[in-house]
Amino acid sequence: MAIQPDEVLDCSGLSCPMPILKTKKAIDKLEVGQVLKMIATDPGSKPDMEAWTKKTGHELLEYQQEGEKHIFYIKKTG
């Protein structure tokens, strides 16, 4: 808990492929080691973000679900 994100990206209301595209753009703007908090309401975002981080190598530090909201903390790696 209490991860302090460097950037917050709200993808609420968006569905595939937009949360992934926006996350990619947001991560590109961060420095290595910085953390992005991404919020999505797309139920497919959990498996998709897991697959995306696995493929790109960025680290999924934490995942939370709050009602309809899926919250991801992603750390940019080298």
Binding site: C16, P17, I20, L21, K24, A51, W52, K55, T56
Partner: peptide, 11 residues
């Protein structure tokens, strides 16, 4: 278009 944009987003 969805497959293409997602694929580039996945490096």
């Amino acid at each position: 278009l969805i497959i293409a944009t997602t694929a580039v987003a996945m490096d």
